[in-house]
Computed example of a mutant assay.
Amino acid sequence: MSTHRRIVLFDLFGVIARHQRPGALAQMAARCNTPADAFAEAYWACRPPYDAGQWSAPEYWTAVLRWLSRSADADSIEELRLADIRSWSRVDKRMVAYVRSLREVTEVALLSNIPADHADAFLATQPWLGKLDHAAFSGKIHAAKPDPAAFHHCIVAMQAAPADFLFIDDREENVRAAQATGMNGHIFTRPDELTPVIDTWLPTRRLTPPR
């Protein structure tokens, strides 16, 4: 059932923000004096509970360093934590402008898989996030996509029906999970192909596409 609202729910990384800076993991691996492939394995294998708010940043980095048989001292943890945040800090300015313009004509929300401390850094440096109708960060809501709980959080928080949402994400498994909850979904590939999708979703007004 729909309440006839129109809520565009965006993913962050790979849609509005850039994916991790190339070479960042190799630089962090060098800091740990460990091979890049071994570091990447530990980094990603330990990531889910950090993204979902089950681990703090020190708990996550302690797990990574122990996986690599490296000392988990406080200085190393903090250096890696800050380097990690910097590596995920880039946004696509075209998409930021588009999202801001979209906010003028409809409800716009965000659902991102991001640790709580990373979310705090984004909120501090990207003030437009605070002007969205809702921003849900996995590390703060304790649920990460494609867990249905992440989508249900947005439905409840916005007091909406699932069919009121158009979810935009660059990962097919996340879009399928959103659709399984009753949301509409679209797999993002590039900014110019998104415009007609949004125009169809908002038939009463067309927006200038991101350039």
Rank of each mutant, 00 (worst) to 15 (best):
G53L: 07
G53A: 09
G53K: 02
G53Q: 06
G53C: 09
Q54P: 04
Q54G: 08
Q54A: 14
W55Y: 09
W55D: 15
W55N: 15
W55R: 14
W55A: 13
W55V: 10
W55K: 14
S56R: 10
S56D: 15
S56Q: 12
S56N: 09
S56A: 12
A57P: 02
A57R: 11
A57Q: 08
A57H: 03
A57V: 02
A57E: 15
A57Y: 02
P58T: 13
E59S: 12
E59W: 00
E59V: 02
E59H: 02
Y60C: 00
Y60S: 03
W61P: 03
T62L: 05
T62M: 06
T62H: 10
T62C: 11
A63G: 03
A63R: 07
V64A: 09
V64P: 00
V64D: 07
L65S: 07
L65W: 02
R66H: 04
R66Q: 12
R66M: 07
W67I: 00
W67C: 04
W67L: 01
W67D: 14
L68K: 08
L68P: 05
L68S: 13
L68F: 06
L68Y: 09
L68I: 10
S69V: 03
S69T: 07
R70C: 11
R70K: 14
S71F: 01
S71K: 07
S71R: 08
S71V: 05
A72D: 15
D73C: 04
A74R: 05
A74T: 09
A74W: 00
A74D: 12
D75T: 06
S76L: 12
S76E: 12
S76Y: 02
S76N: 11
I77W: 05
I77K: 06
E78Q: 12
E78C: 01
E78D: 14
E78P: 00
E79Q: 10
E79M: 08
L80D: 10
L80A: 07
L80G: 07
R81A: 15
R81L: 05
R81N: 11
R81T: 14
L82F: 10
L82K: 07
L82N: 10
L82G: 11
A83C: 13
A83R: 11
A83Q: 13
A83H: 09
A83E: 14
A83T: 09
D84C: 10
D84K: 04
D84P: 02
D84S: 13
